[in-house]
Design a protein around this nucleic acid. Sequence first.
RNA 1: CGGGGUAUAGCGUAGUCCGGUUAGCGCGCCUGCUUUGGGAGCAGGAGGUCGGGUGUUCGAAUCACCCUACCCCGACCA
Length: 491
Amino acid sequence: MAKNFPTREENYAQWYNDLVIKADMAENSAVRGCMVIKPYGYAIWEKMQAVLDKMFKDTGHMNAYFPLLIPKSFFSKEASHVEGFAKECAVVTHYRLKNSPDGKGVVVDEDAKLEEELIIRPTSETIIWDTYKKWIQSYRDLPLLVNQWANVVRWEMRTRLFLRTTEFLWQEGHTAHATKKEAIEESEKMLDVYAEFAEKWMAMPVLKGVKSPNERFAGAVETYCIEALMQDGKALQAGTSHFLGQNFAKAFDVKFLSKENKLEYVWATSWGVSTRLMGALIMAHSDDKGLVLPPKLAPVQVVIIPIYRKEEQLAEISKVAVKLKEALQAKGISVKFDDRDTYKPGWKFNEYEFKGIPVRLAIGPRDLENGTIEVARRDTLEKETYQITDIENKVEHILEQIQDNLYQKALSFREDNTHVVDSWDEFKDVIENKGGFVLAHWDGTSETEDKIKAETKATIRTIPMDGKSEEGACVYSGKPSNQRVVFAKAY
RNA sequence: CGGGGUAUAGCGUAGUCCGGUUAGCGCGCCUGCUUUGGGAGCAGGAGGUCGGGUGUUCGAAUCACCCUACCCCGACCA
């Protein structure tokens, strides 16, 4: 399955692509830019969904579902929103096909032209705010805290599995509040949720901050983000949370009567993470031997592989393995006992290694005699033989160690690849030759950011929220600045 | 949308320049036997409208023209 797998060093882009395909997570489909998420990849996404969904509900949100198709006119109601998305919208113009005159296949029935064209949602702010208008009349209807799990379509020119596809899966939270303060708190709270998810579950350290105006969401007053550093030194935006001010409330005329009996526009937020997180997860930890998954998101945490010559040996090993499987499951650990006779142990070792199963247990005739078991860790590739007595506690402990080790490794990688830079020459050199995050002063203008991007392809990934204020001079223009921002080349 | 490239079995490819046997090879697949502690060995077997169309020719995977799809680089983007 995974022979001829390139190393990260040889060809990072190829490594990523092959990894996704050969580990059976996803593949390209018949539709350009759209992928098929295969069962193994989808299982990982489902685990992410389950955790995030619980976090959303624990913070008071409820799920709902809004339509895939949005009337074109809705889009033009919020000026910067249209401008941001117009170029990448798929449009539905007809509602019927008919047999083609030459009898070969079907053609669009021109008589079935829609009165008003429909847009396939690239995001749902407009349809949701059109709906919220009906739901909100009084301060007693607020806050309104809704999330939806959905697919969206953005007609991208160049796509990459999970990282950027034409159709992708995500969740989008949309909330309405009586005050500006409360809405800002909401968007910050959800950013914290994302950061916690990334760090505790994905074992991926992230920087929290706000976007520069250039990178801000179309229609937002402020965009908060979490940014992660990938192994090739490029930054990946892993999640965003937007304070939308009253922009959408004004565009869709959503007002409420306050306690003081005054008619006011509501304050809004939206926030989302997508299947792009899969790409982040894959790139954060995987190595030249394949996928590496943090135990908390691995669909299978432990695999047990029997080694045997004869049927009778398998029967004996199975007794031990099934008992062990049950003991592990009782601890809430997901276990697969792979007793397939159609593949050999060595083949299975490679298969599970490539798919990133955190812990592999092997039991053979020798182990039966000695009361032992072989334990292999995916993160360090270490193998060790232990007494089988009480092994379930040992395994539980190892899973925790792996989760922790992956986070620490990713964190020291980020630290090693974060550079404080004060001169323009050094800036260009680091971006060009080392990659990673560059902490530099910026004069706060779009013009400077544009020029830096044009010359180096680096953009401001985030303006750190917990950044210390520090007097300095813009690395490009020399104008005064009071905080360092994070530059990088980005996905 | 600009620039470059590719299309031959499920996957990866040889053959194309210079037209001429039954289109070859590796992996994978099927059957049998031997194997099983890091991708097993041997033997036998199945699988191809050579991306599509038109043309040139006695004869086209190979030459010409048109079309389509995909990949890489750039502009755009979560």
